[in-house]
Design a protein around this nucleic acid. Sequence first.
DNA 1: CTATTGACTACCG
DNA 2: TCGGTAGCCAATA
Length: 108
Amino acid sequence: MPNSTHFFDKCHEVARQIPYGRVTSYGAIARYLGATKSARMVGYAMTASHGKDVPAHRVVNRKGLLTGKHHFEGTNLMQQLLESEGIKVEGNQIIDFESLFWDPAKAL
DNA sequence: CTATTGACTACCG
DNA sequence: TCGGTAGCCAATA
């Protein structure tokens, strides 16, 4: 890897630490990295996380909405993966998101 | 170098 | 309660 922004790698690192059956938001990761206003960059980092062991399907927006499901292979793959972990999803929104929410800053 | 875009979030009416 | 707008920052054209 010739050059990779520390920010992206950090995002991948945090995302990888998300416990099974848990989810977090882009903003939470950004805030943990000290870039509260750069939540978009976290999402961008997820796009660059292809080929890595980063469970990007566990990262959603602050509303628990699967905004990035279109970036996965299928149209419902992301939801399938989440449901496979015991996370209930209706449409594009995670059920009981607040309870499943995993805050990196709080856990680390 | 400037303009556009995007897996976001916070604020405002 | 809810929809629209603005602010953010990096990548891409």
